[in-house]
Design a protein around this nucleic acid. Sequence first.
DNA 1: TGTTTTTCTGTCCAAATGGTCAAAAATTGT
DNA 2: ACAATTTTTGACCATTTGGACAGAAAAACA
Lengths: 205, 205
Amino acid sequence: MTSPRKVTRIQREKREVILAAALEAFAEDGLRGATLEKIADKAGMSKPHVVYYFGSKDAIYTDLLQSLLEVWVQPLRDLSEDADPLAAILTYMRRKLRMSQDMPRESKMFATEILHGAPRMRQQLSGDLKSLVDEKAALIARWSAEGKIAKIDPHHLIFSIWAMTQHYADFDIQVEAVLGDDRKAGLYDEADAFLTEFFVRALRP
Amino acid sequence: MTSPRKVTRIQREKREVILAAALEAFAEDGLRGATLEKIADKAGMSKPHVVYYFGSKDAIYTDLLQSLLEVWVQPLRDLSEDADPLAAILTYMRRKLRMSQDMPRESKMFATEILHGAPRMRQQLSGDLKSLVDEKAALIARWSAEGKIAKIDPHHLIFSIWAMTQHYADFDIQVEAVLGDDRKAGLYDEADAFLTEFFVRALRP
DNA sequence: TGTTTTTCTGTCCAAATGGTCAAAAATTGT
DNA sequence: ACAATTTTTGACCATTTGGACAGAAAAACA
């Protein structure tokens, strides 16, 4: 038998450690570039041990991707009717920006996966994710029609929020290189201020 | 001697073919994921032949990256003083969007490189590119100060243009999955309309 | 035409790497 | 304490892959 029968405390902990190490490795080098040995090193254990817990490198990758996806779309899920529309969208944008700041490796992992054709996410993208986006787009469209925000294509609005917030995580090397070291510290404050002003202007009816 | 002495017509053509094949391969799978064999297949020649012309896979990659970089930043170079400021920025944005549409593989190659730390571009990013961006940012800042466009951080404005335009190329799989097949055809027209309206609202003084 | 140079490929090699396996070490259960 | 189970690893294997090499094929040159 390859996998253990019952999930013990040790197993959960070890899996956690491995996933954390793998996240780092995958974000740095992608699925192909990350090696089992590197993951094992980062996790502080032997290569066969990593295989013992997940069966294969691919399994780790897929596991990570699946579990992170839920976290990743949560802010959009929380975009709701009851708040002031403009404020709600700004809150959504800010949460996405904060996720870029706090979880750059996760962002990079998703980016790499999608960039290379999302072979392990296609289903979810055109299934769950599409449904979710369509639902929220409808909400935004309603706000738009009621004159509470500007008339604007809701799908592309969502894309623009994704693009601009994740840009700071995915292309951090470029952003920091272009801005220079001295602006590195306050980068996310700058981004927040810029994006807030930007979206307020774009969305105000 | 590894490399030929004089550059003949055949050499130019073969190198072109190889670079085109490699671009496709690198965009699909990244530097690590793309194999010499795959590149050779796409180029319709043998593996050693590819090596004969470039010496190594790395050399092809670096060569591509360098030669494409100039093309890639040209639109920003062309952002100039003499035009109407808002129109000039919109033109820049549109050219970037068109590049995403026409050169998605190039966009993906750059994205992948930067995402993974830009080991072969660091110099250029904090050197040439930073200079160029700083220069154009100063121009935009002047427009801003003169009240010709809204008061806005020019560096982040440039980032936002990069992010939003390249998003359509880099994450095309996601965009198309979320929009659905029926909106696939007119996608770039939609994007153009959306972004134009968006930036006009954001930049109008 | 004969010679030289360039182009091209089949074959092979060494390194990297994902994964297996048997057995040791540690833990758990009785 | 002893047996059973789980955890952990060193050693090993098969495959992939970047690239070297020698020589064939073609082209250029004389």
